[in-house]
Simulated scan of single mutants.
Amino acid sequence: MKWTKPKRIFAYIIYALITIIVICVNFNTKKINITESAKNAFANAINKEKDLYISQINVQYHQKNSPNEIRGEEKKNWSDQAYFIAKDSERNHLDSLFRDEMHKINKYTNTAIGYSYNGKKYNSRDEKFISKATLVQEYKFRKDYNNKSDIILQAYIYTPAYVLLLNNINTYILFAVMLIPITCYIIYNNRNKKENLSKGINNEDGNLIKQRKYQSTKWIEIHEGYYWDNNHNTLRYNNTQVILSGYNIKIFRKFISKEDFFLSHADISKLYEKVESVETKDRAYHLIKSLKECIAILDINVVSIRGKGYKLVFNYDSCQ
């Protein structure tokens, strides 16, 4: 099957889409892993706070003071948190411990903690942060069935999307996989262009004429066997081409615009916006000479007609 340019582009688009989907899946997996790790980090922070800031525990349990079925361990945990709120209403210790635990997992992840108790709600970060952060864990501590007395601890994290992408070796591997094919194609295409531009056709004298390949070339037959591409100023005869430049283009276009391929001195002088004079004739002579040398390889000559002007003669050598 021949791979045309549209087919190659379509195939690469499909290839790139698949790679981007894999990157997105990898991004989501990384985010889920950080979120799950944050749950453990918050639990560790709560336990460390107890170990560091509660030095002695004295528990006295009386059945008559516990009329409900809530376990004693849960009530003890509630009392620990009530103690911490009384001593540190902003929960700076817990906030700092959670941040340290989280940075062991990902140092670019931002954290915050929050709690509610007796109708009071507090967050360690402002509402702008909380609104974009993810609530990863929530613990409820009870001493009775009065919801107002419940203590609820919350853990929030926020990891910028660019961190999840750039701080991941798999992202770079996948981007490389996506870019390698198009990079190889560009290198291969440029190499072919350079090879085509460096090619030429050897004439009978062994001279090398550089050629250019144009996709939009439009050839016009100006004489039997002779073709002219006005867009690229290229003259062709058989397998030989010449690319005109400078004043040669102006003069040649003027010649082929005449039915008999004849230009008077006055016609030539108009190309330079000067009146006819000896200086103009002398300049025209040198310019005509330049054109003659350029197109001689195509068996074309510019013949001087004394006192009148110049004429293009095709197949000049064949006429000799």
Rank of each mutant, 00 (worst) to 15 (best):
K132C: 12
I157F: 00
E90A: 09
L52R: 01
M1W: 08
Y145K: 02
K50L: 13
T234S: 14
I222G: 08
E204C: 04
R212S: 13
A38D: 00
N233T: 07
N248Q: 05
I57T: 11
V136I: 10
T111V: 07
E138I: 03
H103C: 01
W3Q: 14
S55M: 12
E273D: 12
L312S: 09
P181Y: 02
H103Q: 14
A296Y: 10
N118R: 08
I57Q: 13
W219G: 06
L94I: 00
G72K: 11
I180M: 03
T29R: 15
Y139M: 09
P160K: 07
D205C: 09
D126C: 11
V303A: 12
K193R: 15
N202A: 13
L312R: 09
N92A: 01
I295S: 02
S318A: 10
E127Q: 13
Y172L: 02
L164R: 06
S116N: 06
Q60P: 00
A266V: 10
K7E: 07
T159Y: 03
N44A: 12
I14G: 08
I20V: 10
L153P: 02
L287N: 15
A133E: 00
Y158W: 07
I130V: 13
R99C: 03
R306I: 13
C24D: 11
S277C: 04
F314C: 03
E276K: 07
H232S: 01
K107M: 11
N192I: 06
A112V: 02
A45I: 00
I14S: 10
V275Q: 12
F255A: 03
N147I: 09
G114T: 04
S318I: 06
N315I: 06
K289A: 06
A112Q: 01
I130E: 04
E127A: 15
N170E: 11
F42E: 00
S257P: 02
Y188V: 05
N146F: 10
Q241N: 13
D150K: 03
I46V: 09
K121C: 12
N106M: 10
E276S: 14
K132Y: 10
E221Q: 06
N167T: 05
K258F: 05
I105A: 10
G206Q: 11
F98D: 00
R8D: 07
N192R: 15
F255K: 04
T134M: 05
F314G: 02
I182Y: 09
L174F: 07
D205N: 12
C319T: 13
V313M: 06
K218N: 05
W3P: 05
K48G: 00
L179K: 12
N40L: 02
S216L: 14
V302Y: 07
D260G: 05
N248D: 08
K31F: 06
K270E: 12
E293W: 06
S277N: 11
S124Y: 02
I182A: 04
D80M: 07
S269V: 07
I249L: 04
E276Y: 03
I186Y: 05
D51F: 03
K104C: 02
T29Q: 15
D317N: 12
Q81H: 14
K274L: 08
Y108E: 03
K218F: 05
I251C: 02
N301S: 13
D95F: 02
V242F: 04
K121S: 15
F84C: 01
